[in-house]
């Protein structure tokens, strides 16, 4: 089947092409898309190459947070001094995405829009209160990532939209991402991101803890009941253990050739506990710490 390659020079052209080619798909790094095409899982009539679109690049610090262009590769996230300084958990997760070759080409936007269970960036971006900045030719909108990830390999992205940026909060917080996979380059059987915001009034306590979970369920999610239970808590071994147990009840786990649903649920408990303690240590260790 014929597949046309469209190379827009700016965002307007890209959005126009997106509107025109209803059977087309945007291509970012192509690390998943091309594999799916090769395996005949999808056969788009056109590929709209976002590589030349300057508006989708850059990492900008804003007053409320950081805005990350969708075309940043994992390699660029890892290398960004701003991210390393302000939200270390994101480059640290980017470093755990697949292999070097994939990290050199695969993008944050592609990773999020593909929404493959076990992807490493979604849990971290969820825990950073990430928002998807979407545009269509006529107008734009913003969607919190919790609402963006709608289903198994499904997102809120409409057929004429392009994900332009992901905005994350600029937290005064500590954060870690822990991954359980057979090989480090695999998708996560369970991937847990924990971001803890210290309580400025009470040393050792957390004002809030945010937990993003990937791999365990068809859709990456926030463990919101666990987060609620942790507001104002002191994160000791006991609290973290209870939080892990609670989180494991929030996840609708599934089975696949890598692990059963039951095992995944147990691993959510273990990894949430470990991630929280790790983040709490980081918070105590460096005063506030960078998430």
């Amino acid at each position: 089947m014929e597949c046309k390659l469209i190379r827009p020079t700016d965002l307007d052209e890209a959005l126009a092409a997106r509107e025109e080619y209803t059977d087309g798909l945007p291509i970012a790094g192509g690390q998943s898309l091309l594999v799916m095409m090769r395996n005949r899982l999808i056969s788009p009539g056109a590929l709209i190459d976002l590589e030349p679109v300057e508006a989708l690049r850059g990492i900008e610090v804003q007053s409320t947070g950081i805005s990350i262009g969708a075309m940043n590769t994992c390699r660029q996230l890892i290398a960004s001094p701003v991210l390393r300084e302000e939200v270390g958990v994101l480059p640290s997760a980017a470093r755990q995405v697949s292999s070097t070759a994939v990290r050199n080409l695969g993008t944050i936007g592609g990773n999020v829009c593909h929404n493959e269970p076990g992807a490493d960036l979604p849990p971290v971006l969820l825990a950073l209160n990430g928002r998807a900045v979407l545009r269509r030719r006529t107008h734009g909108r913003e969607v919190p990532l919790e609402e963006f990830f709608t289903g198994y390999f499904e997102t809120a992205l409409e057929a004429d939209e392009i994900l332009c940026r992901i905005d994350i909060e600029h937290p005064n917080a500590a954060g870690v991402y822990l991954k359980h996979a057979i090989s480090p380059e695999d998708l996560a059987i369970v991937g847990v991101a924990a971001v803890v915001v210290p309580d400025s009034e009470r040393p050792g306590a957390v004002a809030e803890a945010r937990i993003g979970i990937g791999g365990a369920a068809p859709v990456p999610l926030r463990a919101s009941r666990t987060e609620a239970a942790l507001k104002g808590a002191v994160l000791d071994e006991e609290t973290a253990r209870a939080a892990g147990e609670l989180a494991s009840t929030e996840v609708d786990t599934g089975s696949d050739p890598h692990a059963s649903a039951g095992y995944r649920r147990k691993m959510v408990a273990v990894f949430v506990r470990r991630a929280l303690l790790h983040a709490a240590n980081q918070m105590m260790g460096n005063g506030h710490g960078a998430a």
């Binding site: 057979i182 090989s183 380059e185 696949d256």
Partner: peptide, 8 residues
């Protein structure tokens, strides 16, 4: 889905 050891 069929995992052989990687260099890592």
């Amino acid at each position: 889905d069929y995992k052989i050891p990687s260099s890592q």
